[in-house]
């Protein structure tokens, strides 16, 4: 009890010292502030846009996640009711989780493998390689667009090209989009086909691997598989890691393809998280529930990103650290 009184003069002295120290560069600090004001003015178009259309809505959605807001009525505070409903009562929520995880687990490795394979093919000095690089990148530019999704629907439709080819080869036509077992695969194939951006990053990574390493390995008698496994892969792990994180984040948010190609069906096998969230928000107008779903998705993505970073120390090799 008596101690605070004893220390009082000391702390006062410290305060005085601090205020003295602060008083000295006062002029400079004011100049700083003015410069900042001009700076803020220059970025104000972006800043105002960010505050109005991103930050404030995000903050409000956090509040709405704990209400039953449905646009027409104000929305009462319901506490954790939305989250409780999500995890204990909503059967479709469980289905959408299963569909999303299945999709992410299929697409992320497949797309990365495909992108790496194509990148290695294109990492040569053959003629026309630039043309091929551009050609292989194009699907990813247009890939997430509505037009490609519509095209995909036609390709896999009952009278689509895929079935026509199957029939030519003597197979029975398959109802790709209507069958709960095959529908998700049409979306997986679409996603894998859009391997362009990880491919470009892999390509850049491959070019950075010094050719001396391959030469040395060849002299030591390494086969091409060994060169890939012992030289390429370890040196590429930081790039693989970067692509992995980007792909995990992007694929948890898959929307357009499922919205247009399969509409979430059949039997909710392609009812991806964001699609279900969108339906709850804009078909059922359950904005509170949808906001809660959005925040859970953020946590899920955050968790898997953090987990990837955690696990990365066991397999990602940075040249600068030890080697």
């Amino acid at each position: 009890m008596s101690e605070p009184i004893a220390t009082l003069p000391v702390s006062k002295r410290v305060d005085e010292a601090a205020s003295e120290a602060a008083s000295q560069p006062k002029r400079r600090s004011r100049g700083f502030k003015q410069n900042n004001a001009v700076g803020y003015l220059f970025i104000s178009p972006w800043l105002i846009g960010f505050l109005l259309f991103s930050f404030i809505p995000i903050a409000i959605s956090l509040y709405l996640a704990f209400t039953n807001y449905d646009l027409l009525s104000g929305g009462e505070w319901t506490g954790l009711r939305n989250f409780e409903r999500m995890f204990t009562q909503d059967i479709r929520y469980g289905r959408s989780m299963i569909a999303t995880f299945k999709y992410v687990l299929l697409v992320v490795p497949l797309r990365l493998m495909f992108a790496l394979a194509v990148a290695m093919l294109l990492n040569t000095k053959r003629r026309g390689v630039y043309w091929f690089r551009a050609a292989y990148y194009i699907p990813s530019i247009i890939g997430a667009s509505v037009a490609v999704a519509v095209m995909w629907r036609q390709l896999f439709g009952p009278q689509g090209v895929i079935n026509a080819i199957a029939q030519l080869l003597g197979f029975d036509p398959i109802n790709w989009l209507g069958n709960p077992d095959t529908a998700i695969w049409t979306l997986v194939i679409l996603a894998v086909w859009q391997f362009g951006s990880p491919m470009l990053i892999f390509l850049a990574g491959l070019r950075q691997i010094p050719s001396e390493l391959y030469e040395a390995a060849s002299i030591d008698g390494a086969t091409s598989w060994q060169r890939f496994y012992r030289v390429t892969l370890p040196l590429l792990t930081p790039i693989i890691f970067f692509n992995l994180i980007m792909q995990i984040i992007a694929n948890f948010r898959v929307f357009t393809q499922a919205f247009i190609v399969t509409a979430g069906g059949p039997l909710d096998t392609t009812l991806f998280y964001t699609l279900y969230l969108y339906r709850r928000a804009f078909n059922d107008f359950q904005m509170g529930y949808a906001s809660a779903m959005a925040w859970v998705l953020l946590l899920i993505i955050g968790f898997f990103t953090a987990l990837s970073f955690r696990l990365s120390r066991y397999w990602v090799f940075y040249e600068t650290k030890e080697g």
Binding site: R153, G157, P158, N175, L177, G178, N179
Partner: peptide
């Protein structure tokens, strides 16, 4: 069948 209807639904 419902499966066939689903595949043709949005045409």
């Amino acid at each position: 069948s419902y499966e066939e209807i689903q595949a043709a639904a949005s045409t």
